[in-house]
Computed example of a mutant assay.
Amino acid sequence: MPDRRRDAKPNETTRRALLGGTLLGTTGLLLGGTAAATTSPPSTRALSIAGTDSWGARPPRSEPVVLARPARKIIVHHTATPNSTDYSRAHAFELARSIQDYHMDHNGWIDTGQHFTLSRGGHLTEGRHHSLAAFDSGGNHVVSAHTSGQNRLAVGIENEGTYNSVAFPGTQYDKLVELCVALCDSYGIESYEIYGHRDFNATGCPGDRLYALLGQLRADVAASVGGDPTGVSWPLLRPGDEGERVRTLQHLLNEHGATLSIDGIYGPATETAVSDFQRSTGAIVDGLAGTQTWNQAVRDRENGDSGPAVRAVQHRLGTTVDGIFGPVTESAVRNFQDGRGLRVDGVVDARTWDELLG
């Protein structure tokens, strides 16, 4: 696999019923403040993350699946629990146990849903078993249960608190930057592949105040790992639209099981396929192809892949459309990336898909 940052180159489908207004045994206090904290990029990649043994985790009901490939993106959450003023490590451990209990006993999952949890005091704990080992390896990813449609692709980070109207604490933000830098460095994730839960699913998570910080988070991470931190921006397509963007959407929907004719017309069949896909991935079901639909539909494609998504790439590049990503397609992707000022690695990631859509 190419280096995804440098020029060398079904799962548990739902994860969140809100944890509720009580944590889980802790008394919360909503903090005031109108300005979010800022931080300088971390100067070290060394992180202290308490493993599942350290905080007294229960054994998982069954062994989590570990994929022999790296994570592709990072998704940021908030726990939607009270904004505790207990910043101790002991509280962070209590939080980790409470979340695991809720996910296993209430949601019926095999283990904690997310990979890592960050307390308001800046303490990091491993969530799902084996997440820390996978992170350390840089080449493995634990199938999780934090974002419907993305659990085989993305690292999930739960941030303690509720950030709809309350500012995100500076200590917590600093540690979030540090963790994201380390994850991007280990897995080769680009900073523009840092998202909020609401970018994929019908939810308010991670809260308006924390979500508004994601642009700054990407920039602070990029200051350490390099690259362009600008988030991708998708077109909004609707019934009645026609053209190449609709054709690309139809290919991508077929990649996920639809059987559409590739005619470039957003008619009733395409609208139904969009709604069905949105429903299956936990996105807002409105029949319109917007941010959540595109984020769920696109998948990284590279040499060796095949299928309708590759056909979409080939059609947009003007190469032979055979659905097989071989050397000719890779060369065309590299030329396209070079011409658009993108990272030239031959991998069609979210940024390249965004540019292909025009």
Results as ranks from 00 to 15, higher is better:
94 E>D: 01
113 G>W: 00
98 S>K: 09
125 T>W: 04
103 H>E: 15
104 M>I: 15
115 H>D: 13
95 L>H: 06
118 L>S: 01
119 S>Q: 11
98 S>V: 01
120 R>D: 01
77 H>C: 12
78 H>E: 15
95 L>D: 01
96 A>L: 07
73 K>E: 15
115 H>A: 11
109 W>R: 07
73 K>N: 05
112 T>L: 06
84 S>V: 15
82 P>Y: 03
89 R>C: 01
74 I>E: 10
116 F>Q: 10
85 T>F: 00
85 T>D: 05
88 S>K: 11
108 G>I: 04
103 H>P: 03
74 I>K: 06
103 H>C: 15
73 K>Q: 13
100 Q>S: 01
117 T>Q: 05
92 A>F: 03
100 Q>W: 03
71 A>M: 08
89 R>E: 10
93 F>D: 09
99 I>P: 09
95 L>I: 08
112 T>A: 14
86 D>C: 10
73 K>D: 11
93 F>T: 02
91 H>M: 11
103 H>L: 13
72 R>F: 00
120 R>W: 00
121 G>W: 00
86 D>V: 11
121 G>Y: 04
104 M>R: 14
116 F>C: 06
112 T>M: 08
108 G>S: 05
117 T>D: 02
97 R>V: 07
90 A>L: 09
93 F>G: 04
91 H>P: 06
96 A>S: 12
93 F>N: 01
120 R>H: 01
122 G>C: 05
74 I>R: 08
96 A>E: 02
93 F>R: 02
88 S>H: 10
115 H>F: 08
106 H>D: 12
86 D>T: 13
104 M>Q: 13
118 L>G: 03
107 N>E: 12
78 H>N: 15
109 W>F: 12
101 D>L: 11
104 M>T: 15
81 T>A: 07
91 H>D: 09
111 D>T: 12
91 H>R: 13
116 F>V: 09
112 T>R: 07
92 A>R: 00
84 S>A: 14
87 Y>N: 04
120 R>L: 13
112 T>Y: 11
104 M>V: 15
115 H>G: 10
94 E>Y: 00
100 Q>N: 02
113 G>K: 06
72 R>V: 11
89 R>Q: 14
105 D>G: 07
75 I>A: 02
108 G>Y: 09
101 D>G: 06
123 H>Q: 06
99 I>D: 02
97 R>S: 10
123 H>N: 10
95 L>F: 08
